[in-house]
Amino acid sequence: MAPTTSDVPPWYKQFWPWFLIGLLFSSIAFSTLYLVMSIKFYDGSVQQDYYKDGLAINEQLAKQEHAQTLSLAASLLVDSRTGDIVVDLEGERRPDQLHLSLIFPTAGGRDRSLVLDHLHGGRYVTVIDEPLRHRWYLQLQPSAGRDAEWRLTGEATFPSEETIDLTPGL
């Protein structure tokens, strides 16, 4: 016996059309949610001029090699309670100021640039306004920007009571 048209309910009362429509709308909702989140929480980890930065790696290596020929090294100590940053510079050069770049690995908006003033011998100091947390890349140079004569680099996880070594290596 064949079903008659009166035995089959209309399409809007059946399960499968609503299941397929639900899949479609859920994929649209999740796509919109991911789009909004990616715009709102943009991390900016890829630079716009990445090609030029890639070509400039040789200049960075030359700065670090020059620091090595000058026998430069530094130790950095951050006091998490007072915010004091103390750098002891060893080597032939002792500029009046040093520039310390604190680079956050994933969020470019959190990067900081500090100027350290020379006290005596090879000691430089500055104060930071809020305590450092998490992992940071450190770059110490005699002047700000890409025109510096030499560069020392390091990496640290804060808060830390230990001294951090800044060396001419990459």
Rank of each mutant, 00 (worst) to 15 (best):
T69L: 15
D117C: 02
L20G: 07
G91N: 03
R94K: 14
S31C: 07
H120R: 15
S6F: 07
W16N: 09
F15P: 01
Y137W: 11
Q141Y: 00
Y51S: 13
F25W: 10
Y50S: 08
P3I: 11
T5M: 13
G83D: 04
R123F: 01
G83P: 00
Q48A: 12
Q14R: 15
Q47G: 12
L61M: 14
E59M: 09
H118K: 14
E162R: 11
T163S: 11
T32Q: 13
G169H: 08
L55V: 06
F158D: 00
D84Y: 10
S80N: 13
K52E: 14
D129F: 04
S113P: 00
D49L: 05
E162W: 02
D88M: 05
L116G: 01
R112A: 05
K40C: 01
V86E: 14
S71P: 01
G145F: 08
T106E: 13
D79L: 03
I128K: 00
Q64V: 06
N58M: 14
E155L: 14
A107C: 03
L102T: 03
E149L: 15
E162I: 06
D43T: 12
F158G: 01
G109I: 02
L55M: 12
Y137M: 13
H120G: 03
L23E: 04
V86L: 14
P105Y: 11
G121S: 10
H134C: 00
A2H: 10
L72H: 03
P95K: 07
N58G: 13
L98S: 00
S26R: 05
P131T: 07
Y51P: 01
R94H: 12
Q68G: 07
I28V: 15
E59G: 07
I85N: 03
D129M: 06
R151P: 02
L152H: 00
R112E: 12
V8H: 04
L114N: 03
Y34K: 09
A29T: 10
G145V: 11
S26F: 11
I28K: 05
G154C: 09
A2E: 13
Y42G: 04
D129L: 06
R151I: 06
R135Y: 10
T163N: 07
I21Q: 11
P168D: 03
L33T: 10
T5Y: 12
V46G: 04
E59K: 12
P142K: 05
E149I: 11
D117G: 04
